[in-house]
């Protein structure tokens, strides 16, 4: 069943085009990896899909609803922002932080459940700043899971994590997708991780130049070449 439909989405900031005619679909149970270089528009695309940016052209439907008309639908999505955007000096215990997201009183009992699930129940009274990077990431997962979401969106979730924490985190995501049947959309620079985890790939660099199965993407040298070229273009732009 199709749960996300992004149709011809374009977005400009000032005179700069950030997203140019992006279209793709996501089916229930998919694990979609969105790849692209820095500045390719991945986070902007997420912000459009999460209703944080409304001024785009085109249409985004999630669970069949246009998110510009019905923002309540967003409550069914668990969002995990880039870890660097979180203020780790904020005086919140892990339990307080996870409880913040609760959108309905019936989910209050979920707090202890999700903290056990991410193996942080014993640390529930610690302040978020006292945790390691990997643990902080798991707190954000717990926070995103507390409302029993049907879909998770993660923006470069492993940035700044060491290799062991990254590998543990990837295992955890795979488990959520395989066992809990949660649809996952994530952005990443790590092509190898996207290859290991995702069943579908979208490759964007302001425009979308690939959307399809992972196997098709990696079996076609032309796709990999285009991806490498886009990385190079951004690199050149940042120098000149």
């Amino acid at each position: 069943m199709q749960i996300v439909k992004v149709s011809s989405v374009s977005f400009e900031y000032g005179s700069e085009k950030i997203l140019d005619d992006i279209s793709f679909n996501v089916d229930e149970g998919d694990f979609l990896g969105i790849i692209g270089p820095n500045g390719a528009g991945k986070t902007t695309l997420f912000f459009c899909m999460l209703g944080l940016i409304d001024g785009y052209n085109g249409e985004i439907k999630i669970f069949g609803e246009d998110i510009r008309r019905n923002k309540k639908i967003l409550k069914q999505i668990g969002y995990i922002p880039q870890r660097k955007s979180i203020d780790t000096r904020f005086p919140l215990t892990i339990k307080e932080l996870v409880s913040l997201s609760i959108t309905n009183k019936s989910y209050v009992d979920n707090v202890d459940k999700v903290l056990r699930y991410v193996d942080l129940y014993d640390n529930r009274n610690k302040i978020i700043g006292q945790l390691s990077g990997g643990q902080q990431q798991r707190v954000l997962i717990a926070k995103a899971l507390v409302n029993n979401p049907k879909m998770l969106m993660l923006d470069e979730p492993t940035n700044g994590l060491d290799q062991t924490s990254q590998d543990n985190f990837y295992l955890f995501l795979k488990q959520l997708n395989d066992e809990e049947k949660i649809t996952i959309i994530w952005t990443s620079h790590d092509l190898d991780a996207v290859n290991r985890l995702s069943n579908k790939i979208s490759c964007i660099n302001k425009k979308m130049f690939y959307h399809g199965t992972k196997d098709d993407f990696f079996s076609n040298d032309n796709n990999l070449k285009k991806y490498s070229e886009s990385q190079m273009q951004i690199h050149m732009h940042s120098h000149y």
Partner: peptide, 13 residues
């Protein structure tokens, strides 16, 4: 929630 993270608060409705 708004003080901690405005964007996430918006997404939560």
């Amino acid at each position: 929630y708004v003080t901690f993270d405005e964007d996430q608060a918006k997404i939560s409705g």
